[in-house]
């Protein structure tokens, strides 16, 4: 993290087309451009199927753009991007390995010795409040605990970019709030750039410095909002009641609603329901 440019993500005019099994070309995202500064927390919201996960895949280097470039730290992404960690909705834990071994996997993949990896894993498990659970297996943990393990596993390699694809999407409201607070706490310590995908606008506004709203498919950037709520933000449950939060939330929702309704009308083919899609 010596270089200040290290974690900057620049997405420039990226288009991604897929070949459908029927042989037609399907444009998932079109001409998407936005930048995430080093240490910035950027949330991406948009209707389902608009290409959020696709965008993330191209930043990580798992996938390549059809047009345009993705740069990380000034370098065009080509192959797996260095210094990136991923966190998915489903926690990617190996069921036959203990919690400790799962967390230690990251450093081991990076070439650390087993003893060193385990020592670091122990330290990270302590930081996420799971001391004493090292020898359990993932299926012996609650959903929230598994999320903590996944978080430790994502952060142990000290990534300069953390990518999260609806990481808390499967959690209940309370656990989600707790996990969000913990994520903010851990993020403040090492300050990686974060690309955070969510369907929950409240979550996006409460956590992020910047919210990117995408249009329904083919996905493009509809608007970018800077969230000027001061940090540290404290508890995400409380911040929801602040006037500035509500103002921003309404503003973004006005932009997003149209897209969500359009996407809904397209997928369901039914009447458009009023109300807030979370």
């Amino acid at each position: 993290m010596a270089d200040a440019n290290n974690g900057r993500i620049e997405i420039e005019g990226v288009t991604k087309r897929f070949l459908t099994p029927g042989g037609e070309v399907f444009t998932a995202i079109k001409d998407v451009s936005f930048t995430v500064e080093p240490g910035q927390f950027c949330a991406v919201v948009g209707p389902t199927g608009c290409g959020k996960s696709t965008t993330l895949g191209m930043v990580s280097g798992l996938d390549r753009p059809s047009e345009g470039t993705v740069k990380v730290g000034g370098k065009v992404v080509d192959g797996i991007t260095d210094g990136v960690s991923f966190m998915f909705q489903a926690d990617a834990l190996l069921p036959w390995k203990t919690v400790l071994a799962n967390v230690a996997l990251g450093p081991i993949f990076k070439g650390a010795s087993k003893a060193e990896a385990q020592a670091r894993a122990r330290d990270w498990l302590r930081r996420v409040g799971l001391t004493g659970f090292e020898d359990r297996y993932p299926h012996q943990l609650s959903g929230g605990m598994r999320k903590r393990v996944a978080m430790a596993a994502a952060l142990i390699n000290e990534p300069k970019i953390l990518m999260m694809d609806e990481p808390f999407g499967a959690l209940d409201v309370q656990t989600k709030a707790i996990m969000s607070n913990e994520l903010l706490g851990l993020w403040e310590q090492s300050r990686p750039a974060v690309l955070f995908i969510t369907h929950d606008l409240d979550e996006a506004v409460a956590l992020a410095d910047k919210v990117v709203v995408m249009t329904s498919s083919p996905g493009t950037v509809k608007a970018v909002y800077d969230i000027d709520l001061p940090r540290p933000r404290g508890s995400v449950q409380e911040i929801r009641f602040e006037p500035r939060f509500l103002e921003l939330q309404h503003q973004i929702w006005d932009t997003l609603r149209e897209e969500v309704e359009r996407a809904y009308a397209r997928t369901a083919g039914g009447p458009v329901t009023e109300g807030k899609a979370a």
Binding site: I80, F109, N157, M163
Partner: peptide, 9 residues
């Protein structure tokens, strides 16, 4: 599972 391991290096 596979992509997480790939991204981990």
């Amino acid at each position: 599972l596979i992509e997480a391991a790939r991204v981990d290096g």
